[in-house]
Computed example of a mutant assay.
Amino acid sequence: MSEHDAVALAERFARYRTEVLAEVEPPGPAAVRRTVRQRRRRTLGTAVAAILALGTGPIFGYAALTDPAPRPGPVDPTGTPSPSPSVSGSVSPSAAPTSASPAAAVPDGRISRAQLLATPVSLPAWRPGPSCPVTDTRLVGTANRDQTNVLQRLAYGDVDGDGATETVALVHCLLGTGGPEQVVVFDRDAAGKVVTLGRVVATALEMPQWLTDVTVRPDGVVRVQVADIAPGGGWPGEWSQRQWRGYRWADGRFTQVEGPTSFGPNPHAMNLVVTATDLVLDTLPDGSRVGTVTVRIRNGGSGPATYVALRLGLPAALRPDGDGWAPCRNEPETTREPVTCDLNRLDAGAEVRLTLGFRAAAGATVGQGTADVDARPMDSRFDFVEEVYEGDNRVKIDYR
């Protein structure tokens, strides 16, 4: 380095110290103490840096001197530092992070028919009266004695929304030839034991008297086919009116959410009972013969008869006569046997009384004998409807 360069560099160092040091705030006692501690460690490094700076020539040194000086960093406070505020109460140490444990598996509630028949179960109480067992009882596959809980049908599906399958069973409390029925849902607890979730629906003394089928939809709705009247005692199953009703599990019980809630009148649920008096003919001055038959028709069933067809099997010589035939919807037959009279609706428990007049023309041969008086229920299409008790729909009368 030439003497001229050395002199110029010295002048720049002097000017730098004059300009920069005037901007620096004198540090407090704490900063002085820290500087003293660090000075010894930095002495050697500072000397080496200065030598390298001088060796690189005036251009590098000039660039370093002309760059903006870095902003001074924070300094320690001159006073005694105040302690940090403490959190009231004890603080538990944080646990070391662990991998999240998987959720406990939901028990599988799919129970096969064989498993259900082999496992003691508890059933919701039957309606008052039936004495079939309900606690720690075994279901049976076929009826073999009275007071037996018979497993009739099974269905499977997630009915409670827990992501696992439950078992839906149609159970019949067999008492003699009849007995109530109910649909029950079974599940398993965490230990694998069969438990009872609840009852979906049960038969009633009125309606429904019969449960015929059960299914489970993918959305968890339990669908039960119910019928108004149970078969037996002369009532065939095909006469029963059937409906599908849907039930959903909510708030700890099953409630109906779909389907009808009542039945309309069953066309077979009537029992027409007929009584009639004998026909005794009197001879009039013109030689004709007249008489009356009093017919009483009572509906002793639980359902109405839409129409009633009355037939009287008297000889063709005896023809309808008088105002007693006014309630008939049709014109009474006057030329052929039997005489008919179609009547309007007859509700359950109601009855109709008719006093029907007959006349035989002068010279007509009537004789004497017996005749059938018969009353039959009809539907809205005027088709005959069968009854359970048809023996009381017909009586015989004498005519003379």
Results as ranks from 00 to 15, higher is better:
284 L>Y: 08
3 E>Y: 05
318 L>E: 12
100 A>V: 11
167 T>C: 07
75 V>T: 12
159 V>L: 06
334 T>E: 12
370 T>L: 03
339 V>E: 13
155 A>T: 06
23 E>R: 06
34 R>I: 14
20 V>L: 15
348 A>L: 03
197 L>K: 00
31 A>F: 06
307 Y>C: 02
359 R>P: 14
43 T>H: 11
167 T>L: 07
44 L>Y: 12
154 L>Q: 08
89 G>T: 01
285 P>H: 01
392 D>F: 06
66 T>S: 14
293 V>T: 09
389 Y>Q: 13
203 T>R: 00
222 V>G: 05
114 A>S: 14
85 P>I: 02
181 E>M: 15
396 K>P: 06
291 G>W: 06
205 L>N: 13
207 M>Y: 13
193 K>D: 14
1 M>D: 15
338 P>A: 09
96 A>L: 11
347 D>Y: 00
365 T>P: 03
68 P>C: 00
32 V>P: 01
350 A>G: 04
307 Y>F: 14
153 R>S: 09
315 P>T: 02
361 A>L: 08
279 L>D: 08
226 V>C: 04
192 G>V: 01
39 R>G: 14
244 W>R: 07
174 L>W: 10
385 V>W: 07
26 P>A: 15
283 T>C: 05
97 P>S: 03
395 V>I: 15
197 L>W: 04
102 P>T: 02
124 P>R: 00
246 G>D: 07
371 A>Q: 02
66 T>K: 09
271 N>V: 05
126 W>Q: 04
379 D>Y: 01
124 P>A: 10
226 V>L: 11
317 A>L: 04
159 V>M: 04
101 S>Q: 11
160 D>F: 02
226 V>S: 05
42 R>H: 11
45 G>Q: 14
203 T>M: 06
218 P>S: 03
60 F>W: 12
308 V>R: 00
99 S>I: 10
17 R>Y: 12
166 E>G: 06
188 R>N: 11
58 P>Q: 12
12 R>C: 07
103 A>L: 09
145 R>M: 09
28 G>H: 01
383 D>F: 10
106 V>D: 01
378 M>V: 08
151 L>V: 08
263 F>Y: 13
201 V>C: 09
120 P>N: 04
305 A>C: 12
216 V>G: 03
310 L>A: 01
374 D>K: 03
25 E>Y: 01
164 A>H: 03
238 E>V: 13
181 E>R: 04
349 G>T: 02
154 L>P: 11
2 S>E: 05
159 V>P: 09
315 P>D: 04
316 A>Q: 12
153 R>V: 09
379 D>E: 04
369 G>T: 00
